[in-house]
Design a protein around this nucleic acid. Structure first.
Lengths: 214, 214
DNA sequence: TGTACATCAGTGAACGCGCGTTCACTGATGTAC
DNA sequence: TGTACATCAGTGAACGCGCGTTCACTGATGTAC
């Protein structure tokens, strides 16, 4: 049987989630290092002191946001990279486009804080990205093209793909920012342009991979 | 004959530069969106109101820092990319390593604010990077390997190289951050490791380029 | 060269405001019997 | 099931502090004659 939380625990989790959601919204237009504790509690609608029941500091909240933004993405990336043949790139670009469309604030947060002013958050993001690279490496090692590759070179390639995915995600994000609510069509083609460029960049990297051992 | 500034203009420029230097130092440990005007004037040693004689806001100061950090780098990048043959990659990696070692705070600032919380600064960085990509494209178009490439594909490749340079720069920056003042040797090899990985990633991209038209 | 006036980089006092953190509290939920 | 006590998420007042911006100012530098 599944363990049901008590009323108190359930309510606490709900409030905690409200903190994360409110912070994410506020972070669309500023960095974590300028996010105020009172600002967040005001957005949630609780007293400033309630914050301390959930987080030690805004940096702590930031680390929680990193886990929320990237934690559930591992299986999807794994499955996508496991796709064989030419379709892998198409699927990867689509995965990124869909994810950015569905969770723009999460993506923006990661892009912004990856090199941001809050050390524990940078470390949390770096660790997550290293995990992605390891997972991509594991999947890449499975294809026939990986024959003859050593571990170092595979990890280098995996990092190249992960960085490329992040760059692509942040380009898709920019197409959302330039979006005109009056006429959504032009930015739809903007999005297609980014998808085309990202696809070609990944293809070029794949080509390099195929000739690496020549 | 060179135009000599009046005493007043010369002193004003000196103070302005002191603002830029002080801000850059303060920005090693925070983002621009949390940088305070009073914080900067305190570091410079002038009254808070003096700030307004030079900048409208900290965002305005940030835009000035972007120009300082990237403005003078164009000729160096151009020359490096113009290097023919296999030495191009070696020189590019060395240029990046040297530049990061000489101007770590500038590099950190650009990496941090590229996706940071201050819109005009993001735009200034985006514009500068687009200029770099155009210049790289122009140089790439000159080599024999560019035969048969259309403009779109060349620009895509140029962006790939520019993004790769930034990633490499930010990896070199991390090696500086992990540096132990007691024993400088281990991080020297850290730096060599980054140089090796960056070189191989660029080689892989170059390989992809060579087989793009196959 | 000297004088009288204009410019303007930097000053210093004052303002209202929101910040993070402390503390003792309340009252609903949880638990032991 | 009912009772008595413990827990603890959220409250609200209070604190000292630094913030950005305004304003009239000063005095060295610049300029016109």
């Amino acid at each position: 049987m599944s363990h049901t939380l008590g009323i108190r625990q359930a309510q606490k989790q709900k409030t905690r989630q409200a903190f994360l959601d409110a912070a994410l919204t506020l972070l669309e237009e500023q960095s974590l290092s300028s996010l105020g504790l009172r600002e967040v509690t005001r957005a949630v609608g609780v007293a400033p002191t309630a914050f301390y029941r959930h987080f030690r500091s805004t940096a702590d909240l930031g680390v929680a946001l990193v886990d929320e933004a990237l934690g559930s993405l591992h299986p999807m990336v794994r499955t996508t990279v496991a796709t064989p043949g030419a379709e892998r790139i198409t699927r990867a670009v689509r995965l990124i486009a869909d994810h950015v469309a569905a969770h723009p604030a999460h993506v923006r947060f990661i892009a912004r804080e990856r090199h941001g002013g809050v050390q524990p958050v940078r470390k949390a993001i770096r660790d997550q990205l290293a995990r992605f690279a390891e997972e991509v490496k594991t999947e890449l090692a499975k294809d026939p093209e990986a024959e003859g590759w050593n571990d170092d070179d595979l990890l280098m390639l995996a990092h190249l793909y992960v960085d490329q995915m992040l760059i692509t995600a942040s380009l898709f994000l920019e197409t959302l920012e330039n979006e005109n609510p009056e006429s959504p069509e032009p930015s739809e083609t903007e999005r297609e342009r980014v998808a085309r460029i990202a696809t070609r960049q990944m293809r070029l990297i794949s080509l390099g991979r195929q000739h690496w051992l020549d």
